[in-house]
Design a binder for these strands. Structure first.
Lengths: 351, 351
DNA sequence: TTGAAAGCGATACCAC
DNA sequence: GTGGTATCGCTTTCAA
């Protein structure tokens, strides 16, 4: 069924016509075309057959009046807004940019709008944003929030929710990247290059994402019969560039030797690299570095960062499609509801 | 006047209560509290005095029913959605990230929602997105679109518009960064360091932003009695990293000598730096580089990029405040409607 | 194939 | 202070 969501304006004009800035309504169109409001609605929604003659009369009126349907009124009646909400943990985290781009783009194709909320690492703000989104009557939610909100039960929001890469309640679907695998990939690469021992810069182990990456590191060391040395790991509070920088300084202070370094996200890796360069280490000759995420600048960096890639665009697109299909009550097989994406090691210049 | 936009849920719960997933309405609350719907409305909006006793009865009912007002209905009635639209030219352009963050954050403070649209460099998409936003009845728009859409008259959208850094119609306000000044700053810095001649990598001179930066470059050369040499300038199509890279290759092919390079945006500068490094030029010893924008990674880069800063967070915040004040019909002096922000040269490691 | 009219869930005017 | 009710602009059932 074709649903006309947006009525074309003549000549690409996007303007109001009524002088007093009042909106043209469906009634105005009906009057002008000499038909009833319902008929206009039928024509515009394409939900009922209407005689060709009346149709064109109506289109005519729509054009000359430059009519644009009021989606608020439609929403009230149909109880659906054609809008999805997106909650990200932190917009500064470049990891979300391509995801957001993909969501916006996919939503656009399906004629959905996107309302954006940033939790800025705050659980309160997360809740408060969520409340607002729900009040706006969004049709569904893509959730990539703080991941540490215990009060939050995404299954009881009353709308479909797709979660990204966090396990804060299952929701009606989730896109999950195998972080253990990613940790293994990175570690294995460094082991095979003989760059031992491997230092680890990680981030809150309370968040499963990072716990898993770290677990992949440990598991792989074990697999190769290598010791796990706590002196080689630094745990940071937020996973930022500055913390990556400080982590290396800390490592250096500890006077432990290491030939390579695995950071559980790219920002940490970049910060670490700065510290290494300042101390005149050559990358990768002296110390190899592997990051995680493949944020947009990873490949642009000097030297280009070797990293574990999470296909961000794909994640965003799949999440949006899954969400919209759920909103539309399309039958979705159980297997499709939980999409697991396999990370990939992108070898560039730092390892 | 205090406007209660969001009703607190007890214990931080965000859940539906009616088993059949039906929404609780104001009428339900009224019935439960034994009052009329209008009284409930008065209490929740705080627009009329209501006896303390009835008030608490109503709050009581709101709590136990876990009522959340339907903003769609409110919007229909009040003809305002508490939502602002944001149109950016391209989300991949990291220049917009902090702006977006600021917009989101400021909107949050004022209890506004943000609907995000990405024109992805396409004028068609820009128009079509705009149409959709207007259909959604947004209260106002922050516009930082392609800047080349001739069909677009932002003054006739029927809602307040604040434009960012483009001159596509004045709108009801604009935040303008003095790009000529920025071009001067960069050029002057290089001249005074004696890094002559200065190559220029620029981007569509049809967009005033970039035309102005280039003009600042020419003007400054003139001021110092230096020749303007066309062989030293490369004009790119989109201002991307890859184009910056290719621009340097082009410059090298032309066999013109240059000791420094001014790129009209940071992405071009970063791409240029890559090409220089690949050709074994040392930055800044052999060739100095100055960018423009101060995108988030500029200071993180290796070497850290010297660049002309546009205070992105401030731009976003001011734009949002100006917009919301306009929406609320607050009196705004003519001078405040056009905010000019002075760029600043941030000297780091590349020049 | 078309039209009349009820109603979505708020707000706000006007009575009392 | 409180309540009845028309209204916002659309969709949709039912009847013609």
């Amino acid at each position: 069924m074709v649903r006309v969501t947006s009525i074309g304006f003549p000549n690409g004009r996007i303007e109001t016509t009524k002088a007093n800035n009042e909106m043209i309504t469906l009634k105005d169109v009906a009057k002008r075309a000499g038909v009833s409001p319902s008929t206009v609605s039928y024509v515009l929604s394409g939900k009922k057959k209407v005689k060709e003659e009346t149709r064109s009369k109506i289109y005519e009126a729509v054009k000359t009046l430059n009519y644009s349907p009021n989606k608020v009124a439609r929403s009230l009646k149909t109880n659906s807004t054609n809008t999805i909400g997106v909650m990200v943990n932190n917009l500064s985290d470049m990891f979300f940019i391509d995801i957001l781009k993909a969501i916006e783009s996919t939503a656009y194709e399906y004629k959905y709008n996107v309302i954006l909320c940033d939790a800025v690492n705050s659980e309160e703000r997360e809740i408060s944003n969520l409340r607002s989104l729900l009040g706006q009557r969004i049709d569904g939610l893509i959730f990539a929030g703080t991941g540490k909100n215990k009060k939050l039960n995404l299954d009881r929001l009353g709308i479909p929710v797709v979660t990204l890469d966090r396990s804060a309640g299952s929701g009606s679907g989730s896109i999950y990247v195998d972080n253990v695998k990613g940790g293994e990939l990175a570690t294995e690469h460094l082991i095979q290059a003989g760059k031992l021992p491997i230092a680890l810069i990680t981030y809150s182990t309370l968040i499963s994402t990072f716990f898993d990456r770290m677990y992949g590191y440990r598991k792989t060391l074990e697999k190769y019969g290598l010791p796990y040395n706590e002196d080689l790991v630094v745990v940071t509070d937020f996973g930022t560039y500055n913390e990556g920088y400080n982590a290396v300084r800390e490592l250096l202070k500890r006077k432990v030797e290491f030939q390579s370094l695995f950071a559980v996200n790219d920002m940490l890796a970049l910060g670490a690299m700065r510290a290494l360069v300042e101390e005149h280490y050559k990358i990768p000759e002296d110390i190899s570095v592997v990051g995680y995420d493949d944020i947009p600048i990873a490949k642009l960096f000097l030297p280009a960062l070797t990293t574990v890639s999470q296909p961000q665009y794909q994640i965003g697109r799949k999440a949006t499609e899954l969400l919209i299909r759920t909103i539309n009550k399309e039958p979705i097989e159980e297997a499709e509801k939980s999409i697991v994406i396999t990370p990939e090691l992108i070898v560039r210049e730092t390892a």
